[in-house]
Nucleic acid binder design. Structure first.
Length: 646
RNA sequence: GCCGGUGUAGCUCAGUUGGCCAGAGCAGCUGAUUUGUAAUCAGCUGGUCGGGGGUUCGAAUCCCUCCACCGGCUCCA
């Protein structure tokens, strides 16, 4: 007998060789039916695998992370089986479960090309195979045997993977006619996979290396119940509806023109109003934190970027230099603001008493992003950073870092961004050679970030080896409507530029010292931040940000005159308002104003004109009753004040 | 940049075995209606069918090429 410990620490005895499934069945039949995997001493196992020693276990159903992982991993194998049946000779790369489903990277046999149109066919084949209820069987195998197997099959991708595995730890999984190199675990059989949807198809380089062959990646998702799949697809539809590219067009916030050039956003009046409001807000916050605004031009001499080192590193992949017609001097569209700011720092000798110096600029920069990488406002070739550079003494680093964190957290709170993740990027622990700056300074900077985030009680992921060559950093990331992750704010420590630009300050010891720089951008870029904000709010911006706050809707042309008076009043109160004087029915005016996401609609007819009131309708909530103009104005002011209160 | 897909009026889309002057709804314009909380009615205007080249008696439709967009990969100072 062996002792099995459950998550609640209760212990039960079973025969040695009992499986996760057996244990589940001993508890309840319905549990046994739903269990898809079992953690045995924190390792995920098949439910059919015999347990032969005392163990701590946890049973997983589809509703937990491990359960989904197993379910989708098995679905990937099922898809592979279908592909092998439909496209004989297909070679397989990797086929993992991901956050929202699974994919498999394949190299279809005989040069076949799989397109979107084929997905239904593959899906049908998967469903047929699933119905057969073929068991997944696990087989431990020697490296020699598994090599022989995949050599015969002619699957060079699997052979490459095997090559990197330790003999003795290799397992195969087999279901029906399909055998795959796999660590597992898997479902007991394919029958549980009831609902399947293959979503899209894409090219993916083998092992993520663009120099290697591009495989066909097929993404899919599957569920134990059709209803769950329907709900999931419904969710995807809803996400699409808040895609910033769609809303940006509908709400007339921004556009792109083929004639202007790809990746170069054109901000329309409403988008500009929104963006400027955000910028004003940030400027105001920064003023409180002792920042000073500066402005620098859109181009800079090539020497500037040679000095900074950017030209050597990125020059050949950037927009190429502009040459002056007479002297033949080369200028670059600025890809960053920091070199310019360093030159501002150098305009006069600085004392330790002057530091920290905090220089802020909404600086527009241009970067040649690869064409396939451009994406709405989140990835563009010309964008404006809410940039600032803090020049400080090494002993001020931690405090300054904390203040920047404060700004970012404050902004996120006001804008209701509660769902973000943060990542600290530090040096590669073992290889310090590729980083610039002294060991002592790095140590100081890394501890400063770690302590600062800790003291702020932040939940962070630490990634070693992700630091830039010039310093460690802290990034803030959010996901867009379709689950894609985007970096917003960033705080980076930099020892490189002060060195390259020979920045100095005179210390209290009357000696020259080198300052440290912090690069920081709470929004990241205005473009990306607005994109994420659009998706986050589904275009229903908070009142204080909305490009248009109020629309006056006369019930018929008879009340146009009174409506104009209302509009005038609102304008005088600095409430951003417009009026719909069209000869249309009120229902239509309301509908269109709602679709434009205008926060407040004021309906004005005979009653209102007589009483000097307005009938207030709040967007997506409906009729709020009537108010006098003064009441409404102070009501709006209060709501705005509440939204931007700390 | 790479793989796959898409590209028809300002917007959303129909039109593929190649064949009357290329269609609809919305928007716009004109007129009627004077309206009470998510689409009033009628008429009119509007398109080099992404650009260029080719095949054909004939191309939105087939082929080539370029461009842009979409889904990913790679990259991201």
């Amino acid at each position: 007998m062996i002792k099995i410990t459950f998550p609640d620490n209760s212990i039960r005895e079973y025969e040695s060789g009992v499986s996760g499934y057996d244990i589940a069945r001993s508890l309840s039949n319905s549990l046994a039916k739903d269990v898809v995997a079992v953690s045995v001493n924190n390792e995920i196992w098949d439910t059919t695998r015999p347990i032969t020693t005392d163990a701590q276990i946890k049973l997983h159903k589809f509703d937990d992370k491990e359960g989904k992982y197993t379910f989708w991993h098995s679905s990937a194998h099922l898809m592979a089986e279908a592909l092998e049946a439909l496209y004989p000779g297909t070679k397989f790369g990797i086929g993992p479960a991901i956050d929202n489903g699974f994919y498999y990277d394949v190299d279809p046999g005989n040069g076949a090309v799989i397109t979107d149109a084929d997905l239904v066919k593959i899906e049908e084949k998967m469903k047929d195979l699933a119905k057969e209820g073929l068991p997944f069987t696990r087989k431990a195998i020697s490296k020699a045997d598994v090599t022989k197997f995949f050599t015969q099959k002619g699957d060079e991708y699997k052979l490459e993977l095997i090559n990197e595995l330790e003999d003795g730890s290799i397992t195969l999984y087999e279901q029906g006619n399909f055998t795959d190199l796999c660590r597992g675990p898997h479902l007991p059989d394919t029958r549980a996979i009831k609902a399947i949807k293959l979503l899209n198809i894409a090219g993916a380089y083998w092992r993520g290396d663009e120099k290697r062959k591009q495989l066909t990646r097929i993404y899919g998702v599957s569920f134990p119940k059709q209803k769950m799949l329907d709900d999931h697809l419904e969710l995807l539809e809803q996400a699409k509806a808040r895609d910033h590219r769609k809303l940006g067009k509908e709400l007339e916030l921004f556009t792109f023109s083929q004639t202007v050039g790809q990746g170069l956003p054109l901000w329309l009046p409403k988008g500009t109003a929104l963006r400027e409001r955000l910028q004003d807000f940030l400027k105001q916050v920064q003023r409180k934190y002792g920042y000073e605004q500066v402005m620098t031009p859109h181009i800079g001499h090539k020497h500037l970027y040679e000095t900074s080192g950017h030209y050597a590193k990125y020059g050949k992949d950037s927009f190429q230099p502009i040459t002056t017609p007479q002297e033949g001097e080369e200028y670059l569209l600025k890809p960053m603001n920091c070199p310019h700011h360093c030159e501002i720092y150098k305009t006069k000798p600085r004392s330790y008493r002057d530091l920290p110096m905090r220089m802020a600029e909404f600086g527009t920069v241009y970067r040649y992003e690869m064409s396939g990488e451009l994406h709405g406002l989140t990835r563009v070739r010309g964008f404006t950073q809410d940039d600032a550079h803090i020049f400080c003494r090494p002993d001020q680093l931690k405090d300054e870092f904390k203040k920047v964190i404060d700004i970012i957290l404050y902004i996120f709170r006001i804008l209701d961004f509660n769902d973000f993740t943060t990542q600290i990027s530090l040096r590669n622990k073992t290889d310090h050679s590729k980083y610039i700056g002294s060991e002592e300074n790095w140590e100081k900077a890394e501890t400063a970030i770690l302590e600062a985030t800790q003291e702020k009680g932040m939940n962070t992921i630490i990634e070693y080896g992700e630091a830039a060559f010039y310093g460690p950093k802290l990034d803030f990331m959010v996901k867009d409507a379709l689950g894609r992750s985007w970096q917003l704010g960033t705080i980076q420590v930099d020892y490189n530029l002060p060195e390259r630009f020979e920045l100095e300050y005179i210390g209290s010891d009357d000696q020259k010292h080198r300052p440290v720089m912090i690069h920081r951008a709470p929004f990241g870029s205005m473009e990306r931040f607005v994109a994420v904000l659009i998706e986050h709010t589904a275009g229903k911006f908070p009142l204080w940000l909305a490009p248009e706050q109020v629309v006056v809707l006369p019930i018929s042309e008879k009340f146009n005159e009174y409506s104009e008076k209302v509009l005038n009043f609102l304008n005088n109160c600095d409430i951003r308002s417009l009026i719909d004087l069209r000869n249309e029915k009120i229902g239509k005016k309301i509908r269109e104003s709602e679709l434009k996401r205008i926060p407040y609609l004021l309906i004005v007819g005979e009653k209102e004109a007589n009483e000097g009131t307005v009938s207030v309708r709040k967007q997506s909530e409906g009729d709020q009753g009537s108010m006098t103009l003064e009441e409404f104005s102070s009501f709006i002011k209060q709501e705005v004040a509440k939204q931007i209160a700390e």
